[in-house]
Amino acid sequence: SKGEELFTGVVPILVELDGDVNGHKFSVSGEGEGDATYGKLTLKFICTTGKLPVPWPTLVTTLSYGVQCFSRYPDHMKQHDFFKSAMPEGYVQERTIFFKDDGNYKTRAEVKFEGDTLVNRIELKGIDFKEDGNILGHKLEYNYNSHNVYIMADKQKNGIKVNFKIRHNIEDGSVQLADHYQQNTPIGDGPVLLPDNHYLSTQSALSKDPNEKRDHMVLLEFVTAAGITHGMDELYK
């Protein structure tokens, strides 16, 4: 796709999030870079409003799984890469995230190029959380598991539907599940690639910047598309 050509090198990323969870309002600002050749993201996020009212790991899918245009699609799968094909005009990404036995996040993001920078601007609203639950009670460990993110075409809306389940580790050794339902639709009216069913395999590492006084998260992530085999004719070339 034409959009794919915008991702040949390292691309700067800007992320802006405004959130409200159970009436606790907050903002997060992030910057870093993405390299789609390797499916690599390096980002640093800062809570610009003081202390973040929710655990950082609960925002990873909104912040970095928010820029799935940096996923590495192998050559034989490039015609299934909706995310890059929607660029530079970008796409709207909407999600509902259900935390098992707790509340939910609803998010709406616009992901697009502004100049040479890929920008992810998000509004997040969280409701029905227990004040002493795993999320508002800050009981999650500061780490992140690997996940597969399942993608299918949504021809009606000229976009994709995505769903997956995140496993958050809790300090007591148990797990907090979070079910994600995602819809992506193009902002522009140019042609986009509608994929066959496949998935993104994601690995994320969270860390801290020892010199950063503000509440923050440093993230390194690798994302690769998989799940579609080479056609038989490919094998015999």
Results as ranks from 00 to 15, higher is better:
residue 52 L to P: 02
residue 113 F to Y: 08
residue 84 K to T: 01
residue 21 V to L: 03
residue 73 Y to C: 01
residue 152 M to K: 08
residue 104 N to Y: 15
residue 92 V to G: 03
residue 71 S to I: 06
residue 84 K to M: 02
residue 167 R to C: 14
residue 174 S to N: 08
residue 129 F to V: 03
residue 235 L to P: 14
residue 126 G to S: 02
residue 45 F to V: 07
residue 167 R to L: 08
residue 46 I to V: 15
residue 198 H to Y: 04
residue 112 K to G: 12
residue 12 P to R: 05
residue 41 L to R: 03
residue 42 T to P: 01
residue 71 S to C: 14
residue 227 G to R: 14
residue 86 A to T: 12
residue 23 G to S: 03
residue 58 T to P: 00
residue 71 S to N: 02
residue 26 F to S: 00
residue 20 D to A: 06
residue 236 Y to C: 14
residue 50 G to R: 01
residue 25 K to T: 06
residue 235 L to Q: 13
residue 159 G to R: 10
residue 138 H to Y: 04
residue 228 I to V: 11
residue 150 Y to C: 07
residue 100 K to T: 10
residue 31 E to D: 11
residue 108 R to G: 01
residue 79 Q to R: 13
residue 132 D to N: 03
residue 121 R to L: 05
residue 225 A to D: 02
residue 172 D to G: 13
residue 221 E to D: 03
residue 179 D to A: 06
residue 199 Y to D: 01
residue 199 Y to F: 13
residue 130 K to M: 07
residue 152 M to L: 10
residue 138 H to R: 09
residue 143 N to Y: 06
residue 200 L to Q: 04
residue 165 K to E: 13
residue 24 H to R: 12
residue 207 S to N: 06
residue 152 M to I: 14
residue 130 K to E: 06
residue 178 A to T: 07
residue 6 L to V: 06
residue 153 A to T: 13
residue 231 G to R: 10
residue 66 G to S: 00
residue 164 F to S: 03
residue 16 E to D: 09
residue 16 E to K: 14
residue 4 E to A: 10
residue 107 T to S: 14
residue 129 F to I: 07
residue 2 K to T: 07
residue 230 H to Q: 13
residue 17 L to R: 00
residue 226 A to S: 07
residue 83 F to L: 07
residue 224 T to N: 08
residue 110 E to Q: 15
residue 175 V to L: 09
residue 143 N to G: 15
residue 187 I to F: 08
residue 88 P to H: 09
residue 149 V to A: 07
residue 205 A to T: 15
residue 125 K to Q: 13
residue 69 C to G: 03
residue 45 F to Y: 14
residue 2 K to R: 13
residue 213 K to E: 14
residue 16 E to A: 07
residue 192 V to M: 12
residue 62 T to A: 06
residue 72 R to C: 14
residue 224 T to I: 06
residue 123 E to G: 05
residue 78 K to E: 06
residue 202 T to P: 02
